[in-house]
Design a protein around this nucleic acid. Structure first.
Length: 468
RNA sequence: GCGCCUCUAGCUCAACGGCAGAGCAAUGGACUCUUAAUCCACAGGUUUCGGGUUCGAAUCCCGAGGGGCGCACCA
């Protein structure tokens, strides 16, 4: 069967429900519209037929009558899932359902596969993720989650543009993986006969743009980390990273909480929501506690990077955490925090003043040289954002990289690689600058109220099927 | 990478050591206001794959593969 190359439609389901809300039962509007979408349900009744048609906006009933509808015999043979274009009058049936009384209609495309049980939909996770196109039609909440994500990103861009940030794009193929501590994916460029790494963070490139004079830049883009997959981890994921010249980490925390609360209001209309059945608030300001403060409070004794290492080791041992040779007091404190506090941080909170030992790109704290002016925002027990006053001293950055190289030599396969081009950039002068990173997928999970990161990724990474 | 759970018709699920079933979808038919329409009829399967135990395996055991959850890694 030949189907048309185009169909000119002039109405959406949801707009019809708005425009004709006051049309009485059994009344005819006198208005003819053209709508298009997929047949989701079909009820035939002799010389009448009722179809529920869904488009991107919602659903509208199609009311076909043998006396009115062209090719009525074919209409009643439509399959669930078929795409149709319909021209007809807007009416409300005697039973009160707003409908398009089908005059002429066209089959736009046939669905040769069905979309699952018309009541239960598709619940098999594997089928849903491998064939999201079917999931999206069978399960409206799947489409809603991806729509929320789209609205989130749109809001984020608008809110950053409003604040004079410039959106940029930086390389995904990198000669060295830099800007974070993570295992990279490796690929190969044939013509250059060179090894490339998919980026694990855009951080160093973005700071080079600040050196170049972009005082406020941001990038929303895909990162790739060669790590385990879990309900909260996809190997490719999306982050916002931004940098603002002349700001410090306090300024950046203020932006973070405002930005996220604004996004919640833009997308959901409120900052007060629930996540997985539990109340949750995006409202700013968010509490601020240093890593040392919250950990001390939690374990009931004062701990910090100045605590004797023997005591830190004992506290770790009490909690069954295996100590690694390379861990100094900073790493020990961080491990203690993660083990005792992180999972309980439900509403957004800033944890600040991370040890310099675990923050090779952050500037030393102005009041304590063992700490940095860094913050992480946590929500629902997970890290939501990370930011700091940027280290802008090239000599110290070189020394920090060299320390990372020592860790790598000692067997830490996630220690940062030394980036000489970045050090050179700092030698041209990076003004005082603060940076921020927010995991878009993680934030989308909160906004969409879903438990698995795959729900907010259209096509999440799955193990390829292979022949036995 | 490790542990636990899981895989039955296109979809949602039964059967849990004794003939592999239902609803929906599909197919044929009835029906002029349906709402997961209803009714009648018909069809649909190497029970993910490969071994094993047994008189007999969807069911028990071993292995492989996919998926879910937890741990590890991490955001």
């Amino acid at each position: 069967m030949t189907t048309p190359y185009s169909f000119e439609h002039d109405a959406f389901a949801s707009s019809l429900h708005e425009r004709f809300a006051h049309l009485g039962d059994g009344a005819e509007s006198g208005t003819t519209v053209k709508v298009a979408g997929r047949v989701m349900l079909l009820r035939t009744q002799g010389k009448l037929a009722f179809a529920t048609m869904r488009d991107s906006s919602g659903e509208i009933q199609l009311f076909a009558l043998s006396a009115v509808t062209t090719e009525f015999e074919d209409f009643v043979k439509l399959h669930l899932g078929d795409w149709v274009g319909v021209e007809g009058e807007v009416v409300r049936t005697r039973r009160g359902e707003l409908s398009v009384k089908v005059g002429s209609w066209q089959l736009l495309a046939e669905a040769k596969l069905n979309f699952g049980d018309k009541w239960a939909g598709i619940s098999d996770h594997e089928l849903r993720y491998r064939h999201r196109e079917a999931d999206l039609w069978a399960n409206p909440e799947s489409r809603l989650a991806l729509t929320r994500r789209s609205e989130l990103v749109r809001s984020m861009r608008q809110r950053l543009w409003e604040r004079s940030f410039t959106e940029v794009e930086t390389p995904i193929l990198n000669g060295i993986p830099s800007g974070a501590a993570a295992r990279p994916f490796v690929t190969h460029h044939n013509a250059l006969d060179a090894e490339f790494f998919l980026r694990i963070a855009p951080e160093l490139w973005l700071k080079r743009l600040v050196v170049g004079g972009f005082e406020r830049v941001f990038e929303i883009g895909r990162l790739f980390r060669n790590e385990g997959i879990s309900p909260r981890h996809n190997p490719e994921f999306t982050t916002l990273e931004l940098y603002a010249a002349y700001w410090d980490f306090n300024d950046m925390m203020a932006l973070t909480e405002e930005l996220v609360a604004d996004i919640a209001r833009d997308v959901l209309g409120t900052t007060e929501v629930s996540y997985q059945g539990r109340p949750f608030s995006f409202a700013a300001p968010w509490p601020r506690l240093s890593m040392s403060e919250i950990t001390s409070e939690k374990i009931g004794e004062e701990v910090s990077v100045h605590t004797p290492e023997s005591r830190l080791h004992a506290l770790l041992a009490e909690r069954g955490i295996a100590l690694h040779d390379s861990w100094g007091p900073g790493r020990c404190l961080s491990e203690l925090f993660e083990a005792t506090c992180e999972a309980d941080l439900w509403n957004p909170i800033f944890i600040t003043e991370h040890p310099v030992e675990i923050s090779p790109l952050a500037r030393r704290h102005r009041r304590d040289a063992l700490l940095t002016e860094r913050f992480e925002a946590f929500a629902v027990g997970r890290e939501l954002a990370n930011g700091f006053s940027e280290l802008n001293d090239p000599d110290e950055q070189r020394a920090r990289f060299e320390e990372q190289a020592r860790l790598a030599a000692a067997g830490d396969d996630e220690a940062m690689t030394i980036d000489h081009d970045f050090i050179k950039a700092l030698e041209w002068g990076l003004p005082p600058t603060a940076g921020l990173g927010i995991g878009i997928d993680r934030l989308a999970m909160l906004i969409a109220d879903v438990a698995n990161i795959r729900e907010v990724i259209a096509f999440p990474t799955l193990k390829p099927l292979r022949d036995a």
